[in-house]
Write a protein that binds this DNA or RNA. Structure first.
Ligand SMILES: [Mn+2]
Ligand SMILES: [Mn+2]
Ligand SMILES: [Zn+2]
Ligand SMILES: [Zn+2]
Lengths: 156, 156
DNA sequence: ATTGAAAATGAAATTCGATTTCATTTGGCT
DNA sequence: AGCCAAATGAAATCGAATTTCATTTTCAAT
């Protein structure tokens, strides 16, 4: 890593070392705040801006990319294999990935038809994960009598 | 429109009238600022927050939805027919739509496999539109000798 | 037509994540 | 050891989104 950065003209520091290591250890899709918290557990003198800058750096050297899910916080997604889609639970914010290989061809053609030169694609499905739905059902049942009644009445 | 809103419990006002009308006349994917500017041409007393609130209202009643392209500004996309994808030019910010009907089935299955209940999908291709690429090529050619040279040297 | 409660408006203030500034320290080099 | 560009941390700034609040307006019931 030190060598890799050196070739790109960046220096290694204890803070950077810790931030990089923590980022790659952690699950993907971390926000600045999340990584900041994690890093702080090891060294509570590290500044927020240093974490932010190093996440940007990780992106700049191509090891991660920013992900925006429209909830106001930028997440950093480690670049691994190929492109993938995201299943984003609106309730618990869990983010799981899924393979999109089968639709790549179609999208490429679509871009082509519009004479568009694609740089990247983004495929997201927002909804509710199994866990949250189960939890909701349990909670809703006992109190949702009115709804149940309404439903029943509508069925002739 | 007045009636439609009334049934949902909202009142009609001159400002709302103008804002709604302008939004539907305007091209899709407008930001608050853009709509604010347009509306201001008719009535320069309307406040920014009123425009913002009414765009939110248009979404709430299901006539539009927010679009986030990760460039920091929220746009409002009129809901028309079915779901569609976006080709987003990183340079001129142009946004063109394309049909995604053929991939819907695949995505539904993908969500299903993860026991995800989808509420919405988002498909974006970011890149450069034909116009921008053409413009770039014209500008780049005369000065990009170094790059061309570099390329030539790398080819053995 | 009058009236009163609820909703809407406009200006200003606030929020909050992202980004920049700046004084100081540090890493990697000769 | 000594230089200098890069890196750091704290604080300041930015900007879009959202809220607050005093005032006005809508509209349904009188
Ligand atoms: Mn991912
Ligand atoms: Mn659209
Ligand atoms: Zn969930
Ligand atoms: Zn363009």
């Amino acid at each position: 890593m030190r060598e890799f950065l050196k070739t790109k003209g960046f220096k290694m520091t204890p803070q950077r070392e810790l931030i990089f290591r923590s980022f790659f250890e952690l699950d993907r899709h971390v926000s600045v705040d999340e990584l900041y918290d994690k890093v702080r557990q090891q060294d509570n003198t590290i500044g927020y801006s240093t974490v932010w800058r190093n996440l940007k750096l990780i992106c700049k050297v191509g090891l991660a990319e920013e992900v925006n899910l429209g909830d106001g916080v930028t997440r950093y997604d480690r670049v691994t294999q190929g492109p993938h889609g995201h299943l984003y639970c609106l309730q618990c914010k869990e983010l799981v990935e899924f393979d999109v290989e089968p639709v790549l061809e179609f999208l490429t053609v679509a871009a082509d038809e519009h004479k568009f030169a694609p740089d990247g694609i983004k495929i997201e499905i927002q909804g509710h994960c199994a866990k949250c739905r189960k939890a909701n059902k349990k909670k809703a049942r006992p109190v949702d009598q009115p709804a149940a009644k309404r439903l029943a009445e509508k069925r002739p």
